[in-house]
């Protein structure tokens, strides 16, 4: 038996009118740090709820550490840690009381597994008599993670742990996850922040209940297939519309302080960009080939599946 692994086979789940998940197939190795990357409404939370035995799928089977989520849910509940979307803490309890309580429901104590959380808990221990409601977003996040870890889970499910948290706290959080992974815990994370994908071992890009791609971040970028040109000029606002009119343009979109330009043709000559822009009276033109990011890849995949979807059905 493939212990520690999470396997989803043909998982489909619908709510009244909405199809939340469509034929999800993915297998996650033991000890992997696996990311589900996608915007709100992609189906991440539904997927996590199925894996944590909170929801049953309509069709398909899912196993966690070899246990079936429907029939062996009790076994799964003993070995997983779960951090739901909103940091689920008792606002009126102190930091320490929260941690104590979550340890107690697993018949454990803070002392028993302190070594597991010490790296994370250290940051908030000075505030252990403060009520959870009075913590900043970053501290709440750390406390919630400590609470999910305190019973030494084999598999950790973190549903959007970094949403609404500032860039610095997010960075620190990912550093913690890397440490946890080195201790052999399988970690499944969901996030709407594309830049966090690069920090996972493998990721699944998710949109409208579909997995659009599953691979290592590097492989996803390698599979991108198109060349991206980062373009700058003195008239950034017009740049978007002017670039659109180049022949066989695949996509033009802003990306930070530059505009990313993609062309469908494999024999595209980047010199065309400058020529085109000079004609449109741009100056200070800079055109550079650039490495695609997960966000570029996500958008490419979205366009593909959009056109696929609109061909597939009429509503």
């Amino acid at each position: 038996m493939n212990k520690g692994a999470v396997i989803l086979q043909d998982i489909t789940k619908s709510y009244k009118t909405v199809k939340a998940l469509t034929e999800i197939n993915v297998s996650i190795e033991k000890g992997e740090l696996f990311g589900f990357i996608g915007p709100d409404g992609a189906g991440k939370t539904t997927l996590f709820r199925i894996l944590t035995t909170l929801l049953n799928p309509d069709t398909g089977t899912a196993t966690v550490a070899g246990f079936n989520t429907i029939t062996d849910y009790k076994a799964i509940r003993k070995i997983v840690g779960y951090m739901p979307g909103r940091f689920s803490l008792y606002q009126d309890l102190t930091v320490e009381e929260n941690l104590k309580f979550f340890a107690s429901i697993y018949k454990s104590t803070i002392e028993e597994n302190y070594h597991l959380i010490s790296d994370i808990y250290r940051h908030i221990e000075p505030f252990k008599h403060r009520k959870a409601a009075q913590l900043s977003g970053g501290m709440k996040q750390k406390l919630a993670l400590s609470c999910a870890l305190i019973h030494k889970p084999e598999v950790l499910f973190l549903d959007e742990p970094t949403t609404g948290v500032d860039a610095v706290s997010r960075m620190e959080f990912w550093e913690m996850l890397k440490k946890l992974r080195s201790q052999g815990i399988t970690i499944l994370v969901s996030t709407p922040y594309m830049d966090e994908a690069a920090l996972c071992d493998r990721v699944a890009l998710m949109q409208n209940g579909h997995l659009m791609a599953i691979d290592t971040p590097d492989a996803i970028i390698k599979a991108f297939g198109l060349t991206i040109y980062a373009v700058k000029s003195n008239k950034m606002f017009q740049l978007l519309t002017d670039l659109q009119s180049i022949q066989e343009t695949e996509a033009v979109y802003r990306f930070g302080d530059v505009v990313h330009y993609l062309n469908k043709s494999s024999s595209f000559d980047p010199a065309k960009i400058s020529q085109h822009l000079i004609k449109a009276a741009h100056t200070e033109i800079i055109v550079k080939q650039t490495v695609p990011t997960i966000e570029d890849s996500f958008m490419l995949n979205m366009r593909k599946s959009d056109s696929f979807n609109t061909q597939g059905n009429d509503n």
């Binding site: 709820r49 944590t52 009790k74 739901p84 689920s88 429901i105 697993y106 609470c147």
Partner: peptide, 13 residues
């Protein structure tokens, strides 16, 4: 409302 019920349900309780 708080979401803590989810965590309780996922626990062995």
């Amino acid at each position: 409302e708080l979401g803590t019920m989810e965590v309780l349900l996922v626990s062995p309780l």
